[in-house]
Design a binder for these strands. Structure first.
Lengths: 141, 141
DNA sequence: ATCATACTGTTGCATATGCAACGATGTCAA
DNA sequence: TTGACATCGTTGCATATGCAACAGTATGAT
């Protein structure tokens, strides 16, 4: 018997992730036309305060070049402020502007509503899905 | 309290899918340097026989332009043969060459081994994960 | 103090993607 | 039959990505 792509976990994960990402992107599209990297950087800055590109790279699973470019675009859009690190001058300190914080306030609500929607669709399976994703992703989340 | 990206399902799904895809790509990298679209087209042709670009597009969740270009590359590599459809001349009939079939034989085995590895990592959660992915992906798998 | 080495963030470049034309072909009603 | 309209696969173009190089800065041994 031949190989069945429809039962192949990497394929199914990839399709599911792409669909969910699209659904979510459609929701915040009206609020702000962000790319996925821009959204991740924004969300991380909201939680972490002033951090470097390297920190973001490590925490949100993105290439440093992608983080760098996303940060530049967000700065141009007035959502993020770049400044130099006090002691280590190689580092850039990124932080949200008031406009960035205001936007994340709205996006955070949208994201939480969407999360609730997904959890409702998943019902009892939600907890196990979470555990499975943790296992698949490796030790660190 | 602020929004937590690490608990956000679209993010976690996306990260997990990317990691697993990388792991799998590393496995078949040695066997054949395929892109993900090329791999999907190959796998579908192996199961479906002679089909059109449109059929593949519908079945493997890829843009038609991506399928078209992947098919062209696979043809250049001697893995796929393109021919005209007998009655509807708009359609292209794609099918594996003997070399393509031979490659899929090897890749299918690699994929099944990898699947088994993933299932082992997931343990009891595998079944629930499958069901959750089906729910998230919508009605059709 | 000096030098080799490592690290940070940006940029260049090749490639992949998404979307909208486009030419070619097919369908269907009048 | 003709002509309006739909469909198929390809291609052009703008943008996003991944990787390697790069300049600037820090670190640590001598």
């Amino acid at each position: 018997m031949s190989f069945d792509l429809d039962q192949f976990l990497p394929y199914r994960l990839s399709v599911a992730a792409a669909r969910i990402s699209r659904r979510f992107a459609a929701l915040y599209e009206a609020e702000a036309g962000l790319t996925v990297p821009e959204w991740r950087v924004l969300a991380h800055l909201d939680k972490a305060g002033a951090v470097s590109v390297r920190d973001i790279t490590a925490r949100v699973n993105l290439e440093k070049s992608i983080v760098s470019r996303a940060a530049t675009r967000l700065e141009t859009a007035g959502l993020v402020r770049k400044s130099g690190h006090s002691t280590d001058r190689r580092l850039v300190a990124l932080e949200l502007t008031p406009a960035g914080r205001a936007l994340m306030q709205r996006l955070g609500r949208i994201a939480e509503d969407f999360q609730a929607e997904l959890l409702a669709e998943l019902g009892d399976d939600a907890a196990v899905l979470g555990r499975a994703l943790t296992r698949l992703t490796g030790t660190e989340v």
